[in-house]
Structure formats: structure tokens, C-alpha cells
Design a protein around this nucleic acid. Structure first.
Lengths: 105, 105
DNA sequence: TGGTTATTTGGTAAAATAGTAAAACAAGCA
DNA sequence: TGCTTGTTTTACTATTTTACCAAATAACCA
């Protein structure tokens, strides 16, 4: 195993933090502007404790930051370049769909 | 839960496929050119069955394609835009390192 | 202080994932 | 056909992740 493996582990941890449908939904929602946990909970539709945990995963990974104002905690996206990546992901999905059509028809 | 959730699940599946240090290493290796399982096994240093499984995960996600030539199977990266994303990930890591320094000093 | 709202934490059962050894398969050659 | 090499699949256990509920915490207001 290459000795630079720790570098890939650090990267994998961040990617892992993104690798959940709900967290992707949250990330995309946070692109427009910051949101409090309660707003994100309404939007996602899971239990608030579940949403809070997803947000802590994103925070630990360094993808979002939190800001407590009064009783509410606002989260905001720290790394907008993640959006470009989602475009790349769409390309994978699109390419695959096209191939499946080709192999059928 | 939003009814578009299947879309986020599809994305998450692809991201999940990337979220492993060895698979990131393989992806980066495949940027230069295609490689057979045996070459990747030497490079990564894991058991060939382990590497093969990682490759099948990447293949199922649509990130690589395989091409059997004789007894060997060559894999090649289908989505080079993934590399840009790795740049974004580096930014997350770098930002976080900077903050940790700031909070200490 | 007591009550209310917003969020996080802890515990737990269910689901998903990782890792690997062994078996299976496929291609080429004697 | 049978042997060898290269790769894939299967089967299994161990580990991790997830989602919910309930309890704990924190900030504010009366």
C-alpha cells in the first residue's frame, strides 16, 4: 500500500460525508442561502434529530459551518465548488442512462 | 421527504462508490491511462480479489468501464471530470487545516 | 425561577458496507 | 482434454451507518 494513503483517507472521509441522499439534499438547499435546522427539517421531512446528525457529519467534514443565533443554529455551505462536482455526477448518471437505452434498443 | 429523493439516491450511490481511499487511489491512477487488474493490484498492494471488488464497485457506479483482452481485463476512467472535484476536496482539507492552526495559535 | 422553543446527544435495532478466503469461470496453450 | 494463469463471484463475519425515540442542553421570555 502506498505510503501516501493517509491523504486518500482524508479525501475519502470528506466524500463519505457527502455520500448520503439526505445530505446531498441539504447541501443543495444550502447553496441558495444559510438555513436553520428547523427549516432543513421541514424541507427534508425526517426527524429533527436525524437532520441534526446529518448536519454534524457535514460539519465535522468541514463542508458546512454553523452559527448559533439565539435558540436557532444556522448552517451554511462552506465549499460551493461542491456544486460543480454534482454536475459531473449528473454526467455519470446521464451517460449510464444513455448506454442502458442503447443496450436495450 | 421530497418526491425527487430517488434522484439524490442515484447521486449518493455514485459518490458512495468514490468514498473509499483505495478507490480514490485507483481513480487517480486511471487518469493517466487504462490499467489491468494485475497492474492496479501491484500498485495498490491489496489482494487481487479485493482490488477486483473495488473495481466492480466503480464499474457498477458507472465511473469506469472494463475491456477484456485475452485473459486480462483493462479498466479505464469514464469520467475525467471527477478530477476537478478532487481539487475541491483538497480545498476543504486545506481550509480545515488553516482553521485548526488559527484556533490553536 | 419556570416554561417554551430549538437543537444535540445517547441508546438501540435494523440495514448497509468492508474485507477476504474459497470456489468458479474464462482464455490460451500443450 | 487437461493444465495454468488471470479475473470474478460467492459466502461469510465484522464493522459501520442509519433512523427513530427519549432525555439532556441551551437560550430566551414572563
Amino acid at each position: 500500500m502506498p505510503s501516501v494513503m493517509y491523504k486518500y483517507e482524508a479525501r475519502a472521509n470528506i466524500i463519505k460525508a457527502m455520500a448520503h441522499p439526505t445530505r446531498l439534499l441539504i447541501i443543495e438547499k444550502l447553496v441558495e442561502r444559510e438555513h436553520c435546522v428547523c427549516e432543513l427539517t421541514d424541507f427534508v421531512g425526517d426527524d429533527i434529530s436525524t437532520v441534526s446528525k446529518h448536519l454534524s457529519v457535514l460539519k465535522n467534514a468541514g463542508i458546512v459551518t454553523d452559527d448559533k443565533r439565539g435558540t436557532m443554529v444556522f448552517y451554511h455551505l462552506k465549499v460551493p465548488c461542491i456544486l460543480q462536482f454534482l454536475g459531473c455526477i449528473e454526467k455519470v448518471i446521464h451517460d449510464r442512462a444513455k448506454e442502458q437505452l442503447a443496450s436495450v434498443g
